[in-house]
Amino acid sequence: MQKADVHESAAEGFPCIELYADSRAYVENHIGVIEFGESIVRLKTALGILRFEGAGLRIRNAEPKCMLIDGQIASITFEKGDQRHRGEQRSSLCGNFSPDMLK
């Protein structure tokens, strides 16, 4: 997979998410995998736990810094309870986000 232009926030260690329709998500700067299964994938990031929900989810590629997830993605959420914000929150996909918002 080719990396697109790296966002400024990604360079600072914050997560950067590229979403291809509702079927594939490319996450940069994750810290580790908290949970993975067919309906949920949770990744640890500098901004907290990034939660993917959907159906038929699968980790296609897992690398030390990057992760490619595919499947039918229904929602992408930052879990607020475990958030540890450091500095200004600059990720464009922070908070609650749903691919339905694009429709």
Partner: peptide, 12 residues
């Protein structure tokens, strides 16, 4: 991943 390995097609 910490040891530099790459994993593909993880299926639970």
């Amino acid at each position: 991943l910490q040891r530099g390995a790459e994993l593909h097609n993880l299926k639970r």
